[in-house]
Every structure is written in C-alpha cells, then in structure tokens.
C-alpha cells in the first residue's frame, strides 16, 4: 500500500538535467540540455539589462533618476565589495568579479522563473572554479619569482627537503574543486528539495512553498554568490600581496 504511494509520487519528481536534442560534432555526440536553455534565458535577461543600462548611461544626467539610479547603485556596491577585500589590486579585477557576481546571482535565482538553475549543473560551476584557479596562478607567477614559489610551497620545511611540496600541491588543486562543488551542491540541494516538495505533496503544495523559494533560491543563492566571489578575491589578493 505504502509502496504504491511512493512509486506513484516518485514519477512526478523531476530535477535531473534532460537532453533536448543531440548532434554530431567531429564524431562526438553532443547534447543540448535544459542547462543550455536556462543559461540562454539568463544571458538574454543580462544582455537586455546591459543594453538598457548602456542606453541610459549614454544620456546620463548629473542628478540621477529612475533607472540610472539603479545602475549606479549596482556598480557602486560591486566596486565597494571588491575594493574592501582586494585593496590596491581592486581596479584590475573588479570587471571580472562584477561580471561573475551578476552571472552567478541571476543563475541562482533563475529558479524563481521556473527554470532549472544553470549552477545546479557541475558543467557550469567547474569552469567558474577553473577560471579562479587560472587567475590565482597567473597572479602568483606574475608577482613572485620561481624561487619564492618553491620556498612557499615547501613552507614549514626547508626548501631542500621538498616533502611538503606534494601536500601543498594537493591543497592547490583542491581549491577549484571545493569552490565549484560548494556552489554546485548548495544550488542542487535547493533544487532537489523543491522538486521533492512539489512532487511528493502534489496538490497540497499550492501556496506555501513560496516561503521555501525565498530561502532556497533567494537567500541561499545570494549567500553562495557572495561566498564564491569573496573566496576568489581572497585567494587572488593573497597572491598579489603588496604589489
């Protein structure tokens, strides 16, 4: 009896990535999935916003009003966040951090529009983590000599005894993996829980899951966006140092 209930309810639960169509790309099978569609919607929203902001800022007035106010507020807040963490290195990195912040934020809260959040797909968060990894090590090789890096990697032990080097290397490789998995698992857990609530409760879940959407999509999404950008900035400014 309980078995039948579980089975019938389990068919309604749907939070996986689905393929929409596939095509051959140099002999490989490539799928266009629901993640691509969600990312397309997010990009359309962001591009529309960017075009509107560009048109507004072309004829910007001394005393801002309406939409110009909103754009200036967003830019000022993002700049303030980057400057508060990175100090003197901020002007070089605020474009990248601002872009990533807005993209991840809109991806996370796109669950409110009925889309499957793109960041609930590991194929989206891993490249973000790898970008951070590349930025960290670009800054490292730009501002430190090879000898300094070697001494730093063998740090608690003297540099002629590179036993600790392996541990440091694993620690460095763990950075992008933990960054991307943190974002992915947070958003995925929100998506799965919302799908379970909608799927298992059926018509009982009519109005009150809105409160859960506020937590899982808005609150959790905003916090994880902030954490991702904050950690990226901290790692990079560790390498940039006082230069």
């Amino acid at each position: 009896m309980g078995h039948g209930l579980l089975l019938s309810a389990a068919e309604n639960i749907d939070f996986m990535v689905h393929g929409i169509f596939k095509y051959k790309f140099f002999g490989h099978e490539v799928w266009i999935t629901t993640t691509h569609v969600s990312i397309l919607f997010v990009m359309l929203i962001l591009i529309g916003f960017a075009i509107a902001a560009n048109i507004t800022m072309r004829k910007a007035t001394e005393v801002p009003g309406g939409f110009q106010n909103v754009v200036e507020l967003i830019v000022e807040k993002l700049d303030g966040m980057v400057e508060g963490t990175m100090g003197k290195a901020a002007p070089r990195y605020r474009n990248y951090i601002g872009t990533v912040f807005i993209f991840i934020l809109f991806s996370n809260i796109s669950g409110l529009l009925g889309l499957r959040p793109p960041t609930a797909d590991y194929g989206v968060t891993l490249p973000l983590g790898l970008l951070t990894f590349i930025l960290i090590h670009f800054a490292q090789f730009k501002y430190h000599s090879l000898k300094e890096i070697w001494v730093g990697m063998c740090s608690p032990l003297p540099p002629w005894l590179p036993i600790w080097f392996v541990v440091s290397l694993i620690g460095e490789i763990a950075v992008p993996i933990s960054l991307s998995l943190r974002l992915f698992a947070n958003i995925l857990s929100g998506t799965v829980m919302m799908a379970l609530i909608y799927g298992l409760l059926g018509w009982i879940a009519t109005a009150w899951p809105a409160a859960l959407h506020v937590y899982f999509d808005l609150f959790s999404g905003a916090i994880q966006t902030y954490v991702f950008c904050m950690l990226t900035m901290t790692y990079i400014s560790d390498q940039v140092g006082d230069n």
């Binding site: 933990s178 943190r182 916090i223 994880q224 954490v227 950690l231």
Partner: peptide, 10 residues
C-alpha cells in the same frame, strides 16, 4: 560570519 558558515558547510 556568513562567509565562515558557508565555508564550514562544505
């Protein structure tokens, strides 16, 4: 606090 909690959550 929020940053530390989010890291601890991992």
């Amino acid at each position: 606090m929020l940053l530390g909690q989010a890291v601890a959550e991992t």
